[in-house]
Nucleic acid binder design. Structure first.
Lengths: 290, 290
DNA sequence: AACGAATTGGAATATTCATTCTACGCGCCG
DNA sequence: CGGCGCGTAGAATGAATATTCCAATTCGTT
């Protein structure tokens, strides 16, 4: 049932969609979601491109537009285009385009957004720094270590816990046998006690190093397991015991260190491993489960 | 005399135009000026519209594009579109992410460092995108919500778990009364059951939305608690119930979405809260004046 | 002033794109 | 269990748009 008056601005349309989202058909909801999530795509790309990305038929988008009162999809696009333009409208390059400095630092004294911007900046720096501190060889070693392990144990507490949990989760996602030493119920020590010679412990730790992690590492070392340390220092108590150390320098803003770089590294590690495994599938030996 | 290699970015094209401006024909200079002055128009409008506004023939614009090495005017437009989007960041992002997804499958995958570099790039993009999708107002609302809460409950499972655990950890660090709904021992439901009218639930969730989180959100809503949703969509099951939604667009490579942006947001949220509390300490009581 | 080369305007053409339409599939209700 | 209606996919259509081409004009040169 098309409305008589189509929303004239992107904001209005957004509201309208949110309001009616529940009562739309499945396919239309799918489109609604895409429209909400990717307004700029909608503004610029052609209908068929949008359709493909949203996983629907072009005609479905036309129907969607009509559902909200537009005569056609093009008119709906216009709304988003205008919105996009007005957002950027301030950028008026004159004939004197000598200003190649697109001023990116907008100083709003406001506070909230500034904090966010600061962290974004900091994490961005940390990420790029990561590329320089981690060498290809190190990464390859680390992946190889994990790939060859029968079972991977992951340990990390306090500040490192999110990184460890991410690692444990995604390793399982790529079908690596993984044991997350989460220390629930004070069982951390026991969990790590079953580690064996063919296994690997990934120990994530940052200053101040959690006692549990150190313990786990010591135990692993004692039982002949390999250790991969993800840490902020090469000489941390854990790194000393490690076979391979991946050093991450996190950004620190107002004495709060971030984790973005570590998460990124963890992610790259796991995906890289997934590639490695895929390649390894062709090889007869070492039949890891898919 | 068409150049062999057309400028691939708007900035390059601007350079090229400025350089050759003097040696262009009158009509071509006219177009050059328009291109420099109104890049946005060029990005979005159709050729004939642009021609009319610039006071030239459509064919002249095609000629202009060819002059700079493009096979047609459309290809030149694409350059400006990409630029517009990456400037606005909301989808220059999607476009680029799509690019290295394509690139990933093409490359042999031999380079470990390459994978890392791609994730760094992807996360970097996601971070910058974050700055644009989260408005100061939203952040302020979210902080306010948390600040006023008696107890903060944090829920997030599977992929969202690292983010949730980070939030829980750092909220406690800044002395906020926090309850981490971690679902250990299948007690998730019970943990969330004690939530009250004065409390806030921070629900972190991404597709596919974990049932436990949805349950927790429903319970919270039923008991009259406020909900802050950190999610990838405005219409996710959790976001629908939420008082405030912070939408995060993560980078995605090979169906592995990252978490760096979410971690960054979480961090900013907590630190921002810490400032807020510090300021509030001077004032009589917990209740902040709105 | 006249010729030639370069440039331009505008119609003709080819291509791409949005939209419409029809037949099919699915779920709902009798 | 069978019919009915909504929703959907996909091809056909028609419109709009980009591009090409050629004749007309301007500009520079001798």
């Amino acid at each position: 049932m098309p409305k008589a008056q189509p929303p004239a601005t992107a904001e209005e349309l957004r509201h309208a969609i949110l309001e009616r989202h529940g009562s739309l058909s499945k396919r239309l909801q799918q489109i609604a979601r895409y429209v909400l999530d990717e307004p700029n795509e909608l503004a610029i790309e052609t209908l068929s491109v949008i359709a493909e990305r949203a996983g629907v038929q072009p005609s479905a988008i036309v129907r969607f537009a009509k559902e909200f009162g537009y005569p056609g999809a093009s008119q709906m696009q216009r709304v988003f285009r205008d919105n996009l333009l007005s957002g950027n409208a301030a950028i008026g390059y004159g004939e004197r385009v000598r200003h190649f400095n697109a001023g990116l630092s907008r100083r709003k004294g406001g506070g909230h957004a500034e904090v966010l911007a600061e962290f974004i900046e900091g994490n961005s720096l940390a990420l790029h720094n990561l590329a320089q501190t981690i060498s290809e060889a190190q990464l390859a070693e680390a992946v190889d270590l994990i790939d060859k392990a029968e079972t991977v144990f992951v340990a990390g507490f306090r500040r490192s816990f999110p990184v460890a949990s991410y690692l444990a989760y995604s390793l399982q996602q790529v079908n690596k046998r993984t044991m997350f030493v989460d220390g629930v119920g004070g069982l951390g020590k026991l969990q790590a006690q079953t580690i064996g010679r063919k296994d690997v412990l990934i120990a994530v730790s940052y200053q101040p190093y959690a006692g549990e992690t150190i313990e786990a590492a010591e135990q692993a070392a004692a039982r002949g397991a390999k250790i991969l340390s993800i840490s902020d220092s090469l000489v941390s108590p854990i790194s000393k015991l490690a076979t391979v150390v991946l050093q991450v320098r996190e950004s620190e803003v107002r004495s709060f260190r971030s984790l973005a770089a570590s998460i990124c590294l963890a992610q790259a590690l796991v995906i890289d491993l997934a590639f490695e495994s895929t390649r390894a599938e062709r090889r007869p030996r070492r039949g890891r489960a898919t």
